[in-house]
Design a protein around this nucleic acid. Sequence first.
DNA 1: CTCACGTGTTACTTGCGGTAACAGTAGCCT
DNA 2: AGGCTACTGTTACCGCAAGTAACACGTGAG
Lengths: 214, 214
Amino acid sequence: MDTTQRTEQQRSADRRRRELLEAADRVVLRDGPGASMNAIAAEAGITKPILYRHFGDKGGLYAALAKRHTDALLEALRAALDAPAERRERVEATLDTYLAAIEARPQVYRFLMHPSEGGPQSDQGFDVGLHSAPLLRRMGEELGKVIEERVDLGPDSAQLARVWGHGIVGMMHAAGDWWLGERPCSRAELVRSLADLLWGRLAAAGDKVGGPSF
Amino acid sequence: MDTTQRTEQQRSADRRRRELLEAADRVVLRDGPGASMNAIAAEAGITKPILYRHFGDKGGLYAALAKRHTDALLEALRAALDAPAERRERVEATLDTYLAAIEARPQVYRFLMHPSEGGPQSDQGFDVGLHSAPLLRRMGEELGKVIEERVDLGPDSAQLARVWGHGIVGMMHAAGDWWLGERPCSRAELVRSLADLLWGRLAAAGDKVGGPSF
DNA sequence: CTCACGTGTTACTTGCGGTAACAGTAGCCT
DNA sequence: AGGCTACTGTTACCGCAAGTAACACGTGAG
């Protein structure tokens, strides 16, 4: 049987794969999301066809690359989410974890969310919709699950929790994206503002009376 | 003076421009967001360089195309947002307006948000980050302004309102995107769920006691 | 020794965005 | 009238990136 040999070679292949991914990571961080397959292959010290043998096409490489970061981020979020603390505290910790991650590695973040906006002639890229969506979807689904597990929402809780999961993730993402671009306030303030929003402060606030021109 | 002639020709150019945009619209709706400049030119009955003379580059065409739809959507949202009604009603109307729009024209929506995911060899596209962001940004800014105008948030209201504007838009967008893909419930239910979230139901709900494995 | 197989290469095709360089046509000026 | 300008349109091309075919080297098994 060749099982032993096969596993041997598979290990070798896996190691190469990891090396290639790390090289791709370096290139993406340096050249921005518009990195070409040629550039990645060069960084890895090899040539294009090998990349294609390992990852099929550019989407495959991207997916593998995204999965690494996505998994790491999701794990951090899960930790914040599952901490034994008050709900508000957990929510703030989760928001802060996410925002800290995108603040610490904006290049990675931009790669995952908005590929192809780095280089001079820029685009020439692949697709984001096919990959960024999965990241947000996964986050939304996970959060939905956690909400359903830990919060008592009465009937239809499953549906409601999923809606909220995706909605909250989207809120976090959009606000984070905007914040990262404009930096209008500190991270802590942003976290607090968003938590306040989730805590119903919009409903609780009063109308402004002396509105303009009404 | 050649002002008359100039305006004359400008009008002609504007008409052509509109025709080209409509052709582009048709192609994008048919071929998905991966439509090539050649295809658009062919649909318009002309050839590529004319498109480039009118729009500069693909980004220009995309921006013009996006602006049409974006403006229309924003106007509808403004109407729902500025209606003379209770706040919760206005919020629900706005959410419903947005969701109805993306439900009615999912192709347009997918083009604006996730270009390049239609065709078989798909990508080969331009960038979305540079264009979808502006749409969400504009919506977030507008909503933030309205919130600041109409809701009494105490000190720091400007900042808070902007954060909330972007956050709520992101929530709406992510939930709508997910909903559009999976259709897990009716539009009305989704609107209600999201409004409930904004109304602080997350904070108000109790913990689930018999959690699994804790 | 040879044969299969995995790793690597060069050299190519295809298809895109984008750009010259050229051709026809309308109106204006003298 | 006849030429000048300005616009619209074309064909043919460049550059570049994704993806592929075909060939070359090394190595362990029979």
